[in-house]
């Protein structure tokens, strides 16, 4: 067990928990998908990196690298499919009201 493993497992746990929290608190399909894709992409990739640190320099590292590459290609497709289905079914994206948006843009400029 070395420090790389600990740090990346920690990152994976944090992203997973926060992604699930986001799925619970966000208002509609699209924003929830953002939270769930944070959980599924960053936390799973962090755990892959932690596995690479734990395995050291061995054939297993190469296998994990191949799986991570495969994951990079296939993972966005699932969230894109859900988003595209919602978009084709005319699900209206949730937006903030005009007044709130003005207030947010004024405060974020500072």
């Amino acid at each position: 067990m070395n420090w790389g493993t600990v740090i990346f497992i920690g990152l994976g746990v944090i992203f997973g928990i926060m992604g699930n929290l986001g799925v619970l608190i966000f208002p509609d399909v699209y924003t929830r998908l953002h939270a769930s894709s944070t959980a599924s992409t960053s936390s799973v990739f962090s755990i892959f990196v932690a596995c690479m640190f734990a395995a050291g320099w061995s054939p297993m590292t190469g296998k994990i690298l191949v799986i991570a590459f495969f994951f990079f290609i296939t993972n966005p497709i699932s969230s894109h499919l859900i988003a595209r289905y919602a978009w084709e079914k005319d699900v209206v994206p949730w937006r903030r009201s005009y007044a709130e948006r003005q207030r947010l843009s004024h405060t974020s400029d500072e």
Partner: peptide, 15 residues
């Protein structure tokens, strides 16, 4: 490009 935009959290390609 569409795949990378979806992979990055915070942006999703709808179409």
């Amino acid at each position: 490009l569409a795949n990378s935009i979806t992979l990055t959290p915070g942006t999703i390609t709808l179409f």
